[in-house]
């Protein structure tokens, strides 16, 4: 299998690099727009932005193939855009409109796409982890070589069900990549204030699950680690853990007083470690693109995001009848 590729830095083409730049930029601009719409009162409730963490999903999607599945928590907009879901449908769900992925009935935290193998969007911290292992269980049961990416944060990493899942995933050799997106803060509690474990991925050792720490601000490093993890799973060796070190620039949700970290800390990450700037530098320094090329991409992305915002405002609210639909699937075959 592809295991021999693991230690090598991926040999990347200009085209691929431009693709990552575009995908990450789409997430960032989309999230900035979502923040803006929230401020205008068009998006309600909780809204958790992914700004700063873009390289994690874009790098891992680069390691996925058609048929692979993904499931994550409530900070899910980036995951949906990265796996190819329609920005219009995502934004319209944020505004609670008929054109949203869940017809406006799910909201920011609860979206799904069977077509793109995106299984949510889960609002209960840690609940998506056994669900991810269950998706992998189904693939193994059905005898295909699909892999599931089960994303969760450093906060969820302290939930008991994560370890129940580690145990069974390893016991049954399930093809699941556990992706710990360590953005250093579980809401307002820093990792250091939540655990004395020096690292989160190493906890997998108690169950025999291999893993590693990954620089989540470097999309190429994430992709390389993702390929290694996926190859491990596809080879039938069971689960793999990636602890991706990342950083969330914005608050936990829109209503975050931001008193648990300094402004300087955030600014330093943005100035020195920004994942999009990193790719931008690689593109320019490697002469893969000119400033004008990148400006053109910026312009395209802005248009996509503005269109999504427009769609999300113009799409009507769900019909009142929708209150009473989708509670039960109603076809019960009388013969198996």
């Amino acid at each position: 299998m592809a295991a021999r590729r693991t230690t090598k830095k991926p040999n990347i083409s200009a085209e691929e690099l431009l693709g990552y730049y575009r995908d990450m930029l789409l997430i960032r601009r989309f999230e900035e727009k979502a923040g803006q719409l929230y401020g205008m009162g068009l998006i309600g409730g909780f809204c958790h932005l992914y700004i700063g963490q873009e390289a994690v999903v874009v790098g891992l999607e680069a390691a996925a193939k058609e048929g692979d599945k993904r499931v994550t928590s409530y900070r899910d907009h980036g995951h949906m855009l990265a796996c190819g879901m329609d920005p219009n449908g995502v934004m319209a769900e944020l505004t609670g409109r008929e054109g949203g992925y869940s017809k406006g009935k799910g909201g920011s935290m609860h979206m799904f796409s069977k077509e793109k193998h995106f299984y949510g969007g889960h609002g209960i911290v840690g609940a998506q982890v056994p669900i991810g292992a269950g998706l992998a269980f189904a693939d193994k049961y059905l005898g295909n070589d699909n892999v599931t990416f089960a994303y969760f944060g450093d906060g969820a990493a302290n939930q008991g069900q994560v370890y129940e899942t580690y145990n069974m995933a390893m016991l049954w050799d399930l093809p699941v990549v556990f992706v710990i997106e360590n953005n250093k803060y579980a809401m307002g509690t820093s990792v250091q204030r939540a655990t004395k474990s020096p690292s989160l991925w190493e906890r997998g050792a108690a169950y025999g699950i291999p893993g590693e720490e990954v620089d989540g601000m470097d999309v190429l490093a994430v992709k390389a680690a993702g390929e290694k993890a996926v190859a491990h799973c596809r080879a039938g060796k069971g689960p793999y853990i990636l602890e991706v070190m990342t950083y969330r620039y914005r608050g936990h949700s829109m209503s975050d007083p931001a008193k648990y970290r300094t402004r300087d800390e955030v600014q330093k990450m943005r100035d020195e470690r920004d994942a999009i700037e990193h790719v931008r530098d690689l593109l320019l320094q490697g002469k893969h693109a000119t400033e004008d090329d990148l400006k053109a991409i910026d312009k395209d992305i802005k248009a996509v995001v503005n269109d999504a915002a427009e769609f999300s405002k113009e799409s009507p609210e769900p019909a009142l009848e929708e209150l009473w639909t989708d509670i039960y699937a109603d076809t019960v075959p009388q013969t198996a």
Binding site: P130, A138, T165
Partner: peptide
């Protein structure tokens, strides 16, 4: 808790 969740995921799958 864990196997109920795995069951749910398997049903989704």
């Amino acid at each position: 808790h864990g196997f109920a969740g795995i069951g749910v995921g398997a049903a989704f799958g």
